[in-house]
């Protein structure tokens, strides 16, 4: 199921739900301020909604990656031990040993930016600046052959990056298994 189909499937029951959701407010709570909203930082949608203005280069990203990321993910994104690989694996998803990485599996480049910005580096999440996050994202995409070594990434170009596995996902088809309740005798 495409994203559009997911949204369409969800749209019908909303009409009845709104009637309840629009009850008169109680007045509990206070109005959120711009500072309240800024404090939560960026959340980024695949169309780029929520991406803060900024830019970074893959070359800058390579230096940051070497300092903050390579210790766990390897100098070329190959992964170390329990720490997952970030690169490689393209063409393996239908095999008995699939390697799921940013390059082989992740459908959106915006997810790479969002996750690095909110959750990495593992020991110090949230410490990369907006520009540094663009830079590291550009380098991780370069490690996967998705961007050239001299790539520059910003809030306008990031959502336009086409990921190799963009069309690799389908919606929930369940029930997909018929349990046979017959007795086996």
């Amino acid at each position: 199921m495409s994203r559009a189909a997911v949204i369409a499937a969800l749209a019908v029951p909303l009409l009845s739900a709104f009637a309840v959701a629009q009850a008169p407010p109680s007045g509990i709570g206070r109005a959120a301020t711009p500072a309240d909203i800024r404090a939560w930082g960026a959340s980024v949608a695949p169309d780029g909604t929520g991406l803060p203005a900024g830019r970074g280069t893959a070359a800058q990203g390579q230096r940051l990656y070497g300092a903050d990321c390579a210790g766990c993910h390897g100098d070329r994104g190959q992964g170390i031990g329990e720490y997952p690989p970030l690169a490689g694996g393209q063409g393996t998803l239908a095999s008995a040993q699939p390697v799921q990485t940013v390059g082989s599996y992740w459908p959106y480049a915006t997810t790479v930016w969002d996750y690095i910005h909110r959750a990495m580096p593992y020991e110090r999440p949230g410490t990369l600046t907006v520009d540094q996050t663009y830079a590291v994202t550009a380098y991780v995409l370069h490690l996967n052959g998705i961007l050239p070594a001299d790539a520059i990434l910003d809030d306008r170009t990031l959502p336009r990056v086409r990921m190799p596995n963009r069309d690799g996902f389908v919606g929930d088809p369940r029930p997909d298994i018929v349990a046979h309740r017959h007795q086996r005798r």
């Binding site: 994203r3 949204i7 695949p46 799921q100 459908p107 997810t111 969002d114």
Partner: peptide, 16 residues
């Protein structure tokens, strides 16, 4: 729209 966070794309998805 769904924001396609890491845990609804890279993880918690089932490879067929």
């Amino acid at each position: 729209q769904p924001y396609m966070t890491r845990d609804e794309t890279a993880s918690y998805t089932d490879l067929m």
